[in-house]
Write a protein that binds this DNA or RNA. Structure first.
Length: 228
DNA sequence: GCGACAG
DNA sequence: ATCTTGTCGC
């Protein structure tokens, strides 16, 4: 009942079954390792590459990584997005040698129409603390966010706080942070800020994004840059 | 009915 | 997601 769905109705049933398993806990505010997860799609829409990169939480040095090629497991439907990428991401997670303490996903967690976005899904399936950092909103409304890095505003949907709109760089478009599993919003925002010393997106997300894009392109070859 | 809609 | 460098505005 929790495998890959064939229809939207099955997907909704799986979300309903897994949602009660989300655990509300403080989470590790000072983890030793953090992992970034991301997926890149081939233009043919038939192939994808999923990457997970584990970083030292303090130095941001790469400790481990895994990239797996696969196929989208479900069509793209807002709200059911996780079903596309979860199977391949879980495979990549199995290949890691270093078990990360926190998963940082490219997408939302509770900031989802049924409170079960990708970050919740991966958290419940792996049992690991997780949260999501999205570049654009899926649900919710918020008050204008202060222009300085660190400023945040509550992301509210259906009368409840489902996440935070967080400014990670001065005067740069904010990101959308939401809890996935076994971590709270304050901890998630703190980790997000610790991972954005220079860019809008967390170093974890950037590292995973690079890894899966490189893999799709055929992998880095030597030190030379592709020529005309 | 019309738009919005993570990646 | 992906197509994509320089350009417009403050």
């Amino acid at each position: 009942m929790t495998g890959s769905p064939r229809t939207e109705a099955e997907a909704l049933a799986i979300q309903d079954a897994l949602r009660p398993q989300v655990i509300d806990a403080p989470g590790p505010s000072d983890p030793a390792t953090v992992a970034g997860l991301d997926v890149a799609y081939h233009e043919d829409g038939e192939r994808l590459a999923a990457a997970i990169v584990v970083l030292d939480a303090r130095t941001h040095a790469v400790l481990d990584s895994a990239v797996v090629h696969g196929r989208p497991a479900f069509p793209y439907v807002p709200g059911l997005f996780a079903f596309r990428e979860v199977p391949t991401l879980l495979e990549a997670l199995d290949r890691l040698r270093v078990r990360p303490e926190v998963l940082i996903c490219d997408g939302h967690g509770l900031a989802h129409p049924r409170r079960f976005g990708l970050a919740c899904h991966l958290g419940v399936l792996t049992g690991l603390p997780s949260f999501g950092v999205g570049k654009t909103p899926l649900v919710g409304a918020w008050e204008p966010v202060g222009e300085r890095r660190g400023a945040r505003s509550e992301l509210v949907d259906g009368g409840e706080v489902v996440g935070a709109v967080l400014r990670t760089r001065d005067a740069v478009k904010p990101v959308f942070v939401s809890v996935g599993h076994r971590i709270n919003l304050g901890t998630a925002c703190g980790l997000t800020l610790a991972l954005t010393p220079r860019f809008r997106l967390p170093e974890t997300t950037r590292a995973a994004d690079r890894a899966c894009r490189d893999a799709l392109a055929g992998g880095p070859r030597g030190v030379t840059v592709p020529r005309r």
